[in-house]
């Protein structure tokens, strides 16, 4: 039982560091898309690791904590993907040093649209 306590404390420490780094990344990054990357990825790993650590510290609670971890792993990337897609549609530009870099997502979308029209004919 002692080894489970050590694993739990280690996981909680890792998760706390990642939650703190998520907050710091949100504050320090230069534009919206890098902020989204730092915020959602780091905080997802941090929350999952912290909750699993509590599950190791109290082994009777492990099933419910594991269910919470599964729901976080489904829901959090979903919301961040929807947010990035919505703000790209709302004409939010990333921070670019070189203005000549094109918009790859838009080009792919136009190509897809053209192919679909060709198939319709």
């Amino acid at each position: 039982m002692q080894i489970l306590n050590y694993i739990g404390y280690f996981l909680i420490s890792i998760g706390t560091i990642f939650l703190f780094l998520g907050g710091l990344g949100i504050l320090r990054m230069p534009d919206f898309y890098t902020r989204l990357q730092a915020g959602t990825k780091a905080s997802t790993l941090g929350a999952m690791s912290t909750i699993l650590g509590i599950g190791f510290l109290q082994p009777e609670w492990f099933v419910k904590t594991f269910i919470i971890v599964v729901f976080i792993a489904i829901a959090n990337p979903l919301s961040s993907h929807a947010l990035a897609r919505g703000s790209h549609k709302a004409k939010q530009m990333p921070f670019l040093k070189d203005e000549k870099i094109g918009d790859a997502y838009k080009e792919e979308e136009e190509k897809l649209h053209k192919n679909q029209k060709k198939e319709d004919k």
Binding site: L19, I26, F32, T40, A47, I51, L83, S87
Partner: peptide, 17 residues
């Protein structure tokens, strides 16, 4: 508005932990 929504999302994940 997108930055603010992202801050809300991160706060909610921190609150779960």
């Amino acid at each position: 508005a997108s930055d603010r929504v992202m801050a809300l999302d991160t706060l909610s994940v921190m609150l779960i932990a």
